[in-house]
Design a protein around this nucleic acid. Sequence first.
DNA 1: CCTCACGTCGGGCAATTTGCCCGGCCTCGC
DNA 2: GCGAGGCCGGGCAAATTGCCCGACGTGAGG
Lengths: 214, 214
Amino acid sequence: MTPSTILLVDDHPIVREGYRRLLDRVPHFRVIAEAADAAEAYKRYRETRPDLTIMDLSMPGAGGIEAVRHIRQWDRTARILVVSIHTRPVFVQQAFAAGSLGYVSKASGPSELLAAAAEVARGRRWVGQDVARDLALGQLDQGESALADLSAREFTILRMLIAGSAVDEIAEALHLSPKTVRNHHYAIKAKLGARTDLGLALAAARAGIDGSDV
Amino acid sequence: MTPSTILLVDDHPIVREGYRRLLDRVPHFRVIAEAADAAEAYKRYRETRPDLTIMDLSMPGAGGIEAVRHIRQWDRTARILVVSIHTRPVFVQQAFAAGSLGYVSKASGPSELLAAAAEVARGRRWVGQDVARDLALGQLDQGESALADLSAREFTILRMLIAGSAVDEIAEALHLSPKTVRNHHYAIKAKLGARTDLGLALAAARAGIDGSDV
DNA sequence: CCTCACGTCGGGCAATTTGCCCGGCCTCGC
DNA sequence: GCGAGGCCGGGCAAATTGCCCGACGTGAGG
């Protein structure tokens, strides 16, 4: 079996270090690059074209989902395993919609991460144990949380808004006109049934997003 | 130098694995136990009495700060190094008030963690680079629990705003001119240092108010 | 191939809200 | 009595929002 090269994306050096040491135990895996944010991830991916990308969702700036989308846009065969502290269905759905092949929770054990990495590296889809449970449970309560109605762009912008970013900052981070961000902002409020920003924050909180995301 | 025994506390197995591998590289350190939550941390501490405890703050249930307090209550000489994703002063202050000896951000590198661990294991206090910066900055901008600065009227209106009431509704409920409510709203934002309503919701949430108050 | 639906991206413009100033009342402590 | 400070409201320019528009690209279905 030919070795799998890996790109590691997480904004915490300590966490990257942990992954690297864990993965280095497996002869089949070779970590060849690391990145600390979405932009750097894209750059490193183009430079190194790894067989597998392990991507953390919560990063400063655009966040991991945008990075997944960006990479997949450039390389439709990119194999990306998302690792996140979140197990809520909306995150998982957004991650898969963006083009990731696998999704595991940070709360899962090392063995599951290795298993997921191996599967995704072979081009197969993988959903972690606890993530799958939450997905299944989410199916039961039909609530849908209206958050599911949001498009990918809207979801990204909502997360950045909740995180405290100003419209202009988001526009710059995403390379968009402030006007476009504003229009998305407007659409989000409409979809979530919020009249004001305060209402938006509340609606988002109810739907399961808190400021600690992004 | 006699070896330092270490108790590792973090609810993410993957993260524990990372620490363990990192620490195992240093002959001087020996990880002798792990725990995934506050209760287990206390139990393990009493069983093993490690020279150093490395404690994550964000854990389900009671959380890391409670664990620190609990352990220190039982053993006033316990040496605890807190590792957290947060750098906000209030977290750091709480952690030290609870009795930890060191505090480093997860965003810092492995070398800083090792340095901090070594220092704390020797009974010396340590504050990480970026944490120290945030502490210093926090000294500058006036607000700790700026919430305390709010007058009674302002506090009432803030709670109603957070609860989702519109300005006009609040005016009616309090028998005030909408203009007055608006002026209070403005003053609140100024006092809490929030530029937008979204920011206000976040600031309030940080300061300990969530929508469930009302 | 064509169309239709939909997401994304932006412009335009009126209406609303905001930032920031003002003054007047009342109460409390000195 | 008098100053400090909270409360109440007005006024007005500047910024933001609500709501409309069209353009482009893509993917599904006829």
